[in-house]
Design a protein around this nucleic acid. Structure first.
Lengths: 129, 129
DNA sequence: TTTGACCTTCACACTAATGGAAAGGTTCAC
DNA sequence: GTGAACCTTTCCATTAGTGTGAAGGTCAAA
């Protein structure tokens, strides 16, 4: 598919799809006329990229971890690179930290919402009485 | 305490502490000479801010949710603002999405690391035999 | 064959977060 | 009272991600 269709299906502006390409995160083929041509599986890929960017992972890092994310590991890991392993360990731990903090704060927000709601209920009961 | 001490204790550059103030996230008192003076509890506060920023939450949003995060809810929620509730619901859901995607990808990375390690073990066993 | 929708590259600009330098005030210790 | 260490504000620079517009090529349909 061409960039417009991918953009529509993924909800990601074509400007950003070109940017991801510039950052080396996707490599669409080119048609004879120079148009980008995206394979079907790239829909999921760009959505994953988008999600990671929104989660605060810089494209540089995404480029490192992306190859390890979706494909059947058995095929890839024939020659384990110890340097890559270090990068992955570090990023995994950073992600875990992020997750913990996010969970903690989301739960705080949730408690707050619930407190608002029960305050509303109290008010409603007063009115009803 | 003054900005230098807070910076040292929190590990956050003073430049950033001034930035957080500019964004309305902290409001240190001022000494007679104009120096910023931070209360003890602000150490935790700026660390929380830092964590949220690193988790990808923009300061604008942090400003909205911060008041709901740490303080005893019962006191605050006397007059629940429905508009604030909408903001909080939206942000909570966004955070949940982030968390899910982060968990999913962290687990993928983890599986990949484990695959690397067992590939290494296989190689080591070969060498040993 | 012209129009319209799509694509291309290039470039300028904006925001958020951050770093850093300049120019100057305060305080304290020698 | 001078120097060192700290603070102040102001301003300029950089990076990542994003928006937008110009100038132009492709292609199908009227």
């Amino acid at each position: 598919m061409r960039i417009g269709e991918l953009s529509e299906r993924s909800g990601i502006p074509s400007r950003m799809l070109r940017y991801y390409e510039e950052q080396g995160l996707v490599a669409p083929r080119r048609l004879d006329n120079g148009y980008r041509s995206y394979d079907e599986y790239l829909v999921d890929r760009v959505l994953k990229i988008r999600g990671l960017i929104e989660a605060g992972i810089p494209t540089r890092v995404i480029g490192d971890i992306l190859p390890c994310l979706d494909r059947p590991q058995a095929i890839v890991v024939t020659d384990p690179d110890p340097e890559l392993r270090e990068i992955l360990l570090r990023e995994r731990d950073r992600m875990t930290q992020r997750i913990d903090l996010l969970v903690q704060n989301r739960d705080s927000i949730n408690r707050y919402i619930e407190a608002m709601d029960s305050a509303l209920n109290v008010a409603a009961e007063k009115t009803a009485s």
